Simulated scan of single mutants.
Amino acid sequence: MPKYVIERTIPKIGEVSAGDLQAISQKSCSVLRGMGPDMQWVHSYVTGDKIYCVYNAASEQQVREHARLGGFPIDSVARVVTTIDPITAEV
């Protein structure tokens, strides 16, 4: 299944409480359950004013529909072509 990176601007998200982050996570999971098994939230990175989410999904349209249904902002969606890491550098 394709992997996507989603960028979301949420001012001061890095300052919210653990309880608020839990509520956002619960909302995302609830929407995903309603969408069926063809989409999976892998994890998200929370920074000062943005969240970068990694999802496995059948299509970009599915990612955007999840955002719409959940009321989540979505600045950009990029399909991951490949992954590199320090092992990639080894000969």
Results as ranks from 00 to 15, higher is better:
residue 11 P to Q: 12
residue 11 P to D: 12
residue 12 K to A: 15
residue 15 E to H: 05
residue 15 E to P: 01
residue 16 V to W: 03
residue 16 V to C: 06
residue 16 V to L: 08
residue 17 S to P: 05
residue 17 S to K: 07
residue 18 A to Q: 08
residue 18 A to K: 05
residue 18 A to V: 11
residue 18 A to D: 06
residue 19 G to F: 07
residue 21 L to M: 03
residue 22 Q to V: 05
residue 22 Q to T: 09
residue 22 Q to S: 12
residue 23 A to D: 14
residue 24 I to N: 00
residue 24 I to Y: 01
residue 24 I to W: 00
residue 24 I to S: 03
residue 24 I to L: 12
residue 25 S to L: 09
residue 26 Q to T: 10
residue 27 K to L: 09
residue 27 K to D: 10
residue 30 S to V: 02
residue 30 S to R: 07
residue 30 S to W: 08
residue 31 V to P: 01
residue 32 L to Y: 03
residue 33 R to Q: 14
residue 33 R to W: 12
residue 33 R to P: 00
residue 34 G to R: 10
residue 34 G to Y: 08
residue 35 M to E: 04
residue 36 G to R: 06
residue 36 G to W: 14
residue 36 G to K: 12
residue 36 G to M: 15
residue 37 P to F: 08
residue 38 D to Q: 09
residue 38 D to I: 07
residue 40 Q to G: 02
residue 40 Q to C: 14
residue 42 V to D: 12
residue 42 V to G: 06
residue 43 H to L: 15
residue 43 H to P: 01
residue 44 S to F: 10
residue 44 S to Q: 15
residue 45 Y to K: 06
residue 45 Y to N: 11
residue 45 Y to M: 15
residue 46 V to N: 06
residue 47 T to E: 10
residue 47 T to P: 02
residue 47 T to D: 14
residue 47 T to I: 13
residue 48 G to W: 04
residue 48 G to K: 11
residue 49 D to Q: 08
residue 50 K to C: 09
residue 50 K to D: 10
residue 51 I to C: 11
residue 51 I to G: 04
residue 51 I to E: 05
residue 51 I to N: 03
residue 52 Y to V: 15
residue 52 Y to W: 14
residue 54 V to W: 08
residue 54 V to P: 02
residue 54 V to H: 07
residue 54 V to L: 15
residue 57 A to I: 13
residue 57 A to H: 00
residue 57 A to T: 09
residue 57 A to V: 08
residue 58 A to R: 13
residue 59 S to Y: 06
residue 59 S to R: 08
residue 60 E to N: 03
residue 61 Q to G: 11
residue 61 Q to S: 07
residue 61 Q to F: 00
residue 62 Q to T: 14
residue 62 Q to C: 04
residue 63 V to L: 10
residue 64 R to M: 15
residue 64 R to Q: 13
residue 65 E to H: 08
residue 65 E to P: 00
residue 65 E to T: 04
residue 66 H to E: 13
residue 67 A to N: 07
residue 67 A to T: 06
residue 67 A to V: 10
residue 68 R to S: 14
residue 69 L to Y: 03
residue 69 L to G: 00
residue 70 G to W: 11
residue 70 G to I: 14
residue 71 G to A: 10
residue 71 G to L: 07
residue 72 F to P: 05
residue 72 F to I: 09
residue 72 F to L: 07
residue 73 P to R: 03
residue 73 P to L: 05
residue 74 I to R: 02
residue 74 I to Y: 02
residue 74 I to M: 02
residue 74 I to Q: 02
residue 74 I to G: 02
residue 75 D to L: 15
residue 75 D to C: 03
residue 76 S to M: 09
residue 76 S to H: 06
residue 76 S to T: 06
residue 76 S to K: 02
